[in-house]
Simulated assay, not measured.
Amino acid sequence: MSIPPPSGPHQPEGPVPAPRPPYGPPPYPRPPGGAGLPVYQPWTQGYRPYNTPAPVNGLAIASLVLGVLCCLPGAGLVLGLAGLRQIRRRGERGTGLAVGGAVLSGVGLLLWTLLFATGGASDLWHGVKEGARDGATVSLTEGQCFNAPGGALSGVTYDVDTVSCTGAHDGEVFASFRLPGGPYPQDDAVTGTADERCRALRDGYAMDGWAVPGYVDVYFLTPTEDGWAAGDREVTCVFGHTDEGGDLTGSLRNDETDLDADQVAYLKAAHVLNAALESVPDEKYTEDDLPGHRAWAGRVSAALGEQARMLRAHDWPAGTAGPVTALAAGLDKARAEWAEAAAARDADAFSAHYENGLDLIDPIRAIPVRSVLGLATTPPAVPDGEGGGTGMQV
């Protein structure tokens, strides 16, 4: 059995959608039979279909940054509280940032207060400075004077204070040089090289060794093993007082910048002999190393010949020529004695010629020339024992 459809027009199932309003400027006419239907307005300026998020408060961001860094906790706390007030007033975002920054800054402020109250801040700063010094090197240049920590030119130091050379000071830099690369040598090797090179370089800064007081010795600053690993290779040569804690006053510099041509010519000739004399063998007694002493005597003989040649080659003033000629003649006699020592067959023969040659180069024989040249006329005192320079590591 079938059921016939109901009479009348066909009706769709479900609710009837409301008719869309016509486009065009308002007012819109109501559709026929549409009493009670809503009236729609188009989108106009000032209204957007998608909402724009509120900006993040800048003070809240700054407060969080300072709170994390803990460098200015007081400022971070103030910025955080100010940011919260602005957020509430302006409807901005960033409440969590402001609260977090204020909390972190408050904790940081409390920690800083405890550090200052207990002296921990001083210890912290000291540690920072020590850490920075571990990779630092002392940098001094030729002609600078300085004071060392505790006044001692020995041990390990990370810093010195440069001062004027006119007043009291611990040391005066007269030269510097760089060591070759490679692995760090043993401390003794570094010290030995520094002592040898610095003593060879001192005459270039203080050309008239007689003008250097007897209480002055050669010291040096050398790199530590840690400094070597960081690339430090520099050795700084220094004049200092032989008594620990003793002061120097005034500069010891006397070179071509403040000496005249005649003084420089004489001193350069004298340095040739000085360098040869300082190359004496390590063995003190001739019989312990006769070949070494004979070779040394040969070097001294050659130096005496070169010194006499240099003195005769210079054009001396009238008042200086006579004393220089006499000195050169004495050097010729000394050269002959040292040449005989170099050819000696035994220790006794060597000693006889050595004594004669040594007498002929007695420093007193140079006083007449020095006097007319205006140089120092008091011979330096000979130290009781041979000693190397003293080093300070940096």
Rank of each mutant, 00 (worst) to 15 (best):
A275V: 10
G246F: 09
H271S: 13
A276C: 04
A265P: 07
V264E: 10
A230W: 11
A230Q: 13
M310T: 09
D282C: 15
L290C: 03
D282M: 14
E234A: 14
V235R: 03
A308F: 07
T257Y: 09
K284T: 15
Y266D: 10
D289T: 06
L267G: 03
T257R: 15
T242R: 14
W228A: 05
E278F: 04
L273Q: 08
L267I: 08
D255E: 05
V280I: 11
R294C: 05
L290Q: 01
E234M: 13
A275L: 12
L290F: 02
W228K: 03
E244M: 15
E306A: 15
D289H: 01
C237I: 02
L290M: 02
R233K: 11
L267R: 01
V272W: 06
A302M: 11
G240Y: 08
E306G: 06
P281Y: 01
D289R: 00
A275Y: 00
R309G: 09
A229E: 01
D289E: 01
N274V: 09
D289A: 04
T257M: 12
L248I: 09
R299G: 11
G305L: 14
A302V: 07
E244L: 15
E287S: 15
V300M: 08
D262M: 14
G305D: 15
L273P: 03
R309W: 07
G305W: 08
G227Q: 10
G305P: 09
L304I: 03
D289V: 00
L311M: 08
L304W: 00
E306I: 06
E234I: 13
E256M: 12
E244W: 08
L290K: 00
D243L: 13
G227F: 05
E278K: 06
A303Q: 02
T249R: 14
L277Y: 00
V238H: 05
G305H: 12
P291D: 02
G240I: 15
G246L: 03
L252G: 07
D282T: 15
V272G: 01
G292A: 04
